[in-house]
């Protein structure tokens, strides 16, 4: 029963938080100077129409305002967006009034998802062995090099790695394409660029977690029983060190979500992040709110799942 209570509480918190974030974002976008019609292309067309045929322009503007609820009071507009988001009825963007945002999401989301998932998998596969190696060789040069490298991975954001990777493996030694999406080769550099920081993070956590575990009594018992060192490390210490690693995944995922936005812009990948500039730069309210809704919800659900996993893996921790 504890878990049902915990889940209800957390889900209600997620819903409230998401609603607050949508409301806050909408108000901030609403009070921003400039509007969608200040954009160069749209603005010119609108001005021409306004000059040639003021009545038609007025009719069009009224139509547009009614369609997006912009003629209503602010609180109703906010409510409209919250309601639409939670019923997954995102409507259409200002830019493309004929294409539902849902269609854009359907084409863009899988791409971003593959990128994020690929980077998480790669960072786990590479980061865990690196962390174990550093822990086993604690305070040797192997450990120092590993620790310094993983710090570097965390300090430098993915977009800097991305451009450097593009330069080395795309231009100087052209073995991978540096833009576009569709083939496996095109996914290699973006996923590596996204993963580098996470590898450092995973390796560092794995290292400290392993060092903690290796100092525990059950490892001493195992060694005293005559368990070979590799088995003590891999069969006894390793599974017990994994528990702490679960806590890294939450923040790491949030970081990766922002990372995909950068990477998609740099590699011209048609994922969710590629439309970000249009959404925010052009004051496209429906698109921007949808973005914020989807990405924030994803991050919060991941955090919830991480908490649940953690309690399953470590029974000492109770759900609150």
């Amino acid at each position: 029963m504890a878990i049902a209570k915990f889940l209800t509480k957390r889900i209600i918190a997620i819903i409230i938080t998401t609603a607050v974030i949508i409301a806050l974002s909408y108000i901030l976008m609403y009070i921003a100077p400039g509007s969608f019609f200040n954009q160069q292309q749209v603005g010119q067309q609108a001005q021409t129409l306004a000059a040639e045929n003021p009545q038609a322009f007025q009719a069009m503007m009224n139509d547009w305002k009614e369609r997006y609820g912009l003629d209503q009071p602010l609180y109703l507009q906010i409510w409209r967006y919250i309601y639409h988001c939670f019923t997954l009825n995102f409507g259409t963007s200002f830019e493309n009034p004929t294409t539902p945002i849902m269609d854009t999401l359907k084409s863009g989301f899988p791409i971003s998802f593959i990128l994020a998932l690929g980077s998480v998998i790669l960072s786990t596969i590479v980061g865990i062995p690196l962390g174990i190696l550093a822990a086993v060789r604690k305070n040797t040069w192997v450990d120092y090099v590993m620790t310094t490298l993983s710090l570097g991975g965390q300090a430098i954001p993915s977009f800097v790695f991305a451009v450097l990777l593009m330069l080395v493996f795309g231009v100087l030694i052209p073995i991978f394409p540096i833009s576009g999406w569709g083939s496996v080769q095109q996914a290699v550099l973006p996923i590596i660029a996204l993963a580098v920081g996470n590898i450092g993070n995973v390796a560092q956590y794995m290292r400290s977690s392993m060092i903690d575990t290796m100092g525990l009594e059950f490892i001493r018992t195992a060694r005293a029983k005559g368990v070979p060192e590799w088995a003590a490390v891999l069969r006894h210490a390793f599974p017990n060190s994994l528990i702490a690693l679960v806590t890294v995944i939450g923040p790491q995922f949030a970081f990766t979500v922002v990372g995909t936005v950068w990477i998609e812009n740099l590699f011209s990948i048609p994922g969710l992040g590629s439309l970000l500039n249009q959404a925010f730069g052009a004051d496209d309210f429906p698109l921007a709110i949808t973005y914020i809704f989807i990405l924030c919800l994803l991050v919060m659900i991941t955090n919830l799942l991480v908490d649940i996993c953690y309690t399953i893996l470590d029974p000492r921790i109770r759900l609150k």
Partner: peptide, 19 residues
Amino acid sequence: VDLMFAFPAYFLNLILVID
């Protein structure tokens, strides 16, 4: 504070820059 930690601040940043 919880609210600020719940979602990537980067998106709030994007809106604030427009404002």
